[in-house]
Amino acid sequence: MKQSTKLLVLLVALVIAACSTEDDSNQPPSNTNTNIETSVNENPSSGDLVTTITSNLSGDVSFSISSQSVSQAFTLDSNSGELRVAAWQVFDFETNPVITATIAISNGTESENKIVIVTLNDMDDIWSFLNTSRQSYENASNGQWIAITQSEYHDLANYLFEVSKCGTTDAQYNRNDPISYDTPYYTYANDNGATVDAQQYVFAFKYICDEDNLTNTKVKLSSTSVSEGYTNLGGDVPMHNSGENYFVLKGNNTPTTDMSYMAVGAERFGYFNGTSGFSFKYGAYDVNELPSNWPGIALYQGLTTTLKQWD
């Protein structure tokens, strides 16, 4: 009797174990959250591959973005799992050093989530936005001005962090007035409110001239007044020709300490003559004091930022 009872108990245990195993195999696995960590250089191109999502789920799976920390940062191929750059402008180290996305994966019956953590590598932002002029920038030493293109200047103005404009505002610079030119070398500083704030880095400028093969053009800053106290910012501007010219300064490591004025010295410098309500100070040749005053707007503009975004 005792032997029969033992056999019965063993049989029941085997049946329970078999049923338990069968039930477990029919249950879908619980959702899992697995982090995928990667890094990319800031300022990438739209369409650049960030990473490829993989899954442990069986069969055909589909991928979708359920959330992302920065809107429109990523696109995701629902079949391949390729996560790519969408809005490249948000891949900016100064504003979004880390961007994340939650990826939902499903095979129709089972599902899992993965979190992608993308760390941005801090790059020389000026270098990033130069194409035609990149080699010249790479070859230059700190403190040198480099000639750049119009589109490069505009990209720097539009995409670097917290950029301001000095020398002239866009409205002052882009007036539809006749342009005058003085033949001798003069240093000009606009007295029009477009100053350089304290703790700003000047990193680029543009101006208009009417002479080819110009040399000795200089950029100056003064925190004393619009009329005096100017010192050179960087070395001489490289040789350039008539028209609108654009330049970038490599490696400016010194921000302004006080509110400052920007001046430019050159031959055949363009200006709006007799413009009502505006005036500029000027002095003959490469000088640091500008004793004379003239009604008008000297045609130059500088770019500044509160944050050093270059090597």
Score class of each variant (00 low, 15 high):
Q3L: 08
L7I: 12
V9N: 11
V9W: 11
L11N: 01
V12N: 10
V12D: 11
A13M: 14
L14R: 02
I16E: 10
A17E: 06
C19P: 05
S20H: 12
S30M: 07
T32G: 07
N33P: 09
T34E: 10
T38C: 15
V40W: 04
N41D: 09
N43W: 05
S45V: 01
S46T: 03
L49H: 02
T52P: 12
F63N: 00
F63P: 00
S67W: 08
Q68Y: 15
Q68W: 14
S71M: 11
A73R: 01
N79Y: 14
N79H: 08
F91H: 08
T100K: 09
N107A: 04
T109C: 05
E112S: 10
I117M: 11
I117P: 15
N121M: 02
D122Y: 14
D125F: 07
I126L: 11
Y137I: 03
A140M: 13
S141K: 14
G143L: 14
Q144N: 15
Q144C: 10
I146N: 07
A147V: 04
Q150V: 03
S151C: 11
A157Y: 13
Y159P: 14
L160Y: 07
E162V: 05
E162Q: 12
E162Y: 12
K165N: 06
K165A: 02
A171H: 04
R175Y: 05
D177L: 09
D177S: 08
P178Q: 08
P178N: 07
S180Q: 09
Y181I: 00
Y185Q: 06
T187N: 02
Y188A: 01
Y188I: 01
D191C: 13
T195R: 13
V196K: 11
Q199A: 14
Y201T: 06
K206F: 00
Y207A: 01
D210W: 07
D210F: 10
E211R: 03
T215F: 05
V219T: 06
V219A: 06
S225M: 02
V226M: 03
E228T: 10
E228C: 10
T231Y: 13
P238F: 07
M239H: 05
G243C: 05
G243V: 02
N245I: 01
V248C: 02
K250E: 06
T254S: 09
T254P: 10
T257D: 05
Y261G: 05
M262Y: 06
A263V: 02
E267Q: 11
Y271W: 09
G277H: 06
A284D: 09
A284P: 15
D286L: 04
N293Q: 05
P295V: 05
G296V: 00
T305E: 13
Q309F: 14
Q309Y: 13
Q309W: 14
D311K: 04
